[in-house]
């Protein structure tokens, strides 16, 4: 059974590489049962999105 520590490592790695099928399913299962990890994953993805927006937004404002 995957624990939160391992899950949090994989949710970072999924932004950097394609997870194996097994890793992806195990992560999905864990996150569906654990709200701490579900929140952590949303936060990490939010940061990823924020980096994409960081230098675009100001342009829209101009």
């Amino acid at each position: 059974m995957m624990n939160c520590k391992e899950a949090s490592q994989l949710m970072s790695q999924e932004l950097d590489r394609k997870l194996s099928w097994r890793e992806a399913i195990t992560l999905k299962l864990h996150v569906s049962l654990c709200d701490g990890c579900a929140n952590a994953r949303k936060q990490v993805n939010f940061i990823h999105q924020a980096c994409k927006h960081a230098f675009e937004l100001n342009e829209e404002k101009k």
């Binding site: 624990n3 939160c4 520590k5 701490g36 952590a40 936060q43």
Partner: peptide, 17 residues
Amino acid sequence: LFNHHGAWNLETKPNAW
């Protein structure tokens, strides 16, 4: 962040933003 079982500690468990 995690206890010795690798689960979130109570104070560090992420909240919803």
